[in-house]
């Protein structure tokens, strides 16, 4: 369980010790367990994510993918083990949790935009309330981000007036507005109509190319193959296999991975 070796080449990646790209360590999970009354959701999770690395988490439903990334910003409380984000270790201290949440952006499957605020207000809420920016500065940033996700003309609409894809892109802009060091995506395209999936995936892909560190839970295999530096396969609360996508999709080593891939591909 020593996970210090830096496996730059990607050859012979082992299941739990896991750093692919070089660079500073951004997220560290060590022996993380999580139980929902009787049901073991996460079992001895060990994962390291370096700066600028894109990790895609796949696996059957109920395998703990979402729980894992929700533990990283404390939407769920893990029971055992350590989680460290950018050098800050997660503890029960409220200030510690706030510190980590400031540095991590989260995008939800069901968008969770604030329906009583306009698109612009959704985006500026964090910078203004948490970072205490003035209105002008926050508005400028909002417009910049909306341009980046290609919906600047929707700034003054309410979320209910947008299409699903536009809503999810707004949610991405809202998360980016906090200028996070890490982005967490929890099945960002699962609630979308098929014709809108691409626009959201393109946005995420551009974000990945810009050097953002991210963990993305998804069922979109071609997307995983295109953006991932490493693919993490989870089943029954465990990390079964980790590897660069070219190895993972063509030559999986574990039986469970092979079974899963044969079912979906």
């Amino acid at each position: 369980m020593t996970d210090s070796t830096d496996l730059t080449g990607g050859a012979g990646v082992n299941a739990d010790a896991t750093v692919a790209k070089g660079g500073r360590e951004m997220i560290l999970c060590e022996h993380v367990d999580k139980t929902f009354s009787e049901f073991l959701a996460l079992r001895d999770i060990n994962l390291r994510v370096s700066e600028k690395e894109v990790v895609v988490v796949i696996g059957p439903s109920g395998s703990g993918k979402s729980t894992l990334i929700r533990c990283i910003n404390r939407l769920e409380k893990h029971d055992r083990g350590r989680i460290v984000v950018d050098g800050v270790e997660m503890s029960d201290d409220v200030r510690n949790i706030q510190e980590i949440r400031k540095e991590t952006g989260m995008v939800f499957q069901s968008f969770n935009l604030f329906p009583h605020l306009t698109v612009r207000e959704n985006i500026t809420l964090g910078p203004r309330q948490v970072r205490r920016w003035n209105k002008k500065r926050a508005d400028d940033l909002a417009m910049e981000l909306l341009t980046r996700v290609k919906i600047p003309e929707q700034a003054d609409k309410y979320p209910s007036q947008l299409s699903g894809g536009q809503q999810q892109r707004t949610a991405i802009a809202r998360a980016l507005a906090m200028q996070p060091k890490v982005m967490l995506f929890d099945e960002p395209t699962s609630a979308l109509d098929p014709e809108m999936i691409k626009e959201v995936l393109d946005t995420i892909e551009e974000l990945a190319e810009s050097g953002m560190t991210m963990i993305c839970v998804t069922h979109e295999m071609s997307f995983a193959r295109a953006v991932a530096d490493r693919v993490v396969f989870m089943a029954q609360g465990e990390i079964v296999e980790v590897g660069p996508p070219e190895h993972f999709f063509t030559a999986p080593r574990e039986e469970r991975t092979k079974l899963f891939l044969s079912q979906i591909l």
């Binding site: 400031k102 969770n112 906090m178």
Partner: peptide, 14 residues
Amino acid sequence: PRGQIEAAQAIGLS
């Protein structure tokens, strides 16, 4: 909905 509170937490609101 619960998701509203989660989204507010995720952007770091107190």
